[in-house]
Computed example of a mutant assay.
Amino acid sequence: MSIEITVLFDVVPGRMESVAAAFQELCDATRQEEGALRFDAFRSVEHPDVVVLVEDWADQEAIDLHMKQPYVAEFLARTDGAFGRPPYVHRLRALDA
Rank of each mutant, 00 (worst) to 15 (best):
S2D: 13
I3C: 05
E4N: 10
D10C: 04
V11C: 03
V11M: 02
V12Q: 11
G14H: 07
R15Q: 13
M16W: 02
S18M: 14
S18R: 13
V19W: 09
L26S: 11
A29W: 03
T30P: 03
T30F: 06
R31M: 10
Q32H: 14
Q32E: 14
E34M: 07
E34H: 12
E34C: 08
A36R: 06
A36S: 15
A36L: 01
R38P: 10
R38H: 11
R38K: 13
D40Y: 07
D40E: 15
A41R: 00
F42Q: 12
F42A: 13
V45H: 04
V45Y: 01
E46A: 14
E46P: 06
E46I: 07
H47K: 12
H47A: 15
V51D: 12
V51H: 09
V54K: 12
E55G: 10
E55S: 05
W57F: 01
A58R: 15
Q60R: 12
A62F: 03
A62N: 02
D64W: 04
D64Q: 12
D64H: 11
L65I: 10
H66V: 01
H66Y: 08
K68M: 10
K68P: 04
Q69F: 00
Q69C: 04
Q69E: 11
Y71A: 07
V72E: 08
E74I: 00
R78H: 09
D80M: 02
D80Y: 00
G81E: 06
F83A: 08
F83L: 07
F83Q: 07
R85Y: 01
P86T: 10
P86E: 14
P86F: 05
P86K: 06
P87D: 00
P87Q: 01
H90D: 04
H90C: 10
R91E: 14
L92D: 09
L92W: 05
R93E: 15
